[in-house]
Design a protein around this nucleic acid. Sequence first.
DNA 1: TTTCTAATTTGTAATCGTTACAATTTTATT
DNA 2: AATAAAATTGTAACGATTACAAATTAGAAA
Lengths: 132, 132
Amino acid sequence: MKNIEEYLKENGVKPSYQRIKIFEYLIKNKNHPKVETIFQELVQEIPTLSKTTVYNTLKLFLEKGIVQPILIEENEVRYDADITTHAHFKCEKCGEVYDFRVNLSQLKIEGLEEFQVKESHIYFKGICKKCL
Amino acid sequence: MKNIEEYLKENGVKPSYQRIKIFEYLIKNKNHPKVETIFQELVQEIPTLSKTTVYNTLKLFLEKGIVQPILIEENEVRYDADITTHAHFKCEKCGEVYDFRVNLSQLKIEGLEEFQVKESHIYFKGICKKCL
DNA sequence: TTTCTAATTTGTAATCGTTACAATTTTATT
DNA sequence: AATAAAATTGTAACGATTACAAATTAGAAA
């Protein structure tokens, strides 16, 4: 908890109660939640919480680069406090999103060396181990 | 044009005038357009065109697997009639989306062999060759 | 502590992309 | 030409996100 406060400060985010709680939620729940989920869970702990605050906060986190959006489905944005480059897999059956370590330097992409790459994203869709 | 009709039929899509035009647009404009762009361009040629038809048609194309959605930005869905696995790069400056050939078999991802992968997606963000 | 100012949070209303749905038009079949 | 089915259209509804102004909170200065 103290660590989260420090981490937010280091990244230029003033650690308000709501911001700490939202970031903490993302750290503890690595299931890549949607805004709606974050809100529904936290409003139980913080009854005055507004959904706008969740949106504002996530937007701020994005700007400061301490969370990344996960885009797999056309109609949902998920958030991840793990900002290292890693792959995601979404199961078509159970809907769960899994993380996978990936070494992108293995990948040689012709022509890309002339571009300045700032972010790399990889994701897969299919049926997960459990559902198979 | 005749080819497009055939291609649609082969994939279970009855080739109506609108469907042909929309697919043709995606084939000719490999700039990964958004729904809005497709509609704005085609309504000039087909004045009676409805945006709902564009949505319906793209949804049908998705179901039949002849287009794929490109998700890079949180608030926009782009469409691509090239359904082979390839990478995308979106320039933060000019907004253009580039294609890159990629050989995913180079990539070894530990644990993924136990999952059934149906789709693979890779994209990058940064500054493109032109804008550098 | 008290006061003042700035930052944050909140709630409501507005906006935008997308979908639902019923009516109309087109296409295919008899 | 008549009929039925499919596709298209336009409008209304919906849901996620944003804008905005008011209320609250936090921090600094007196």
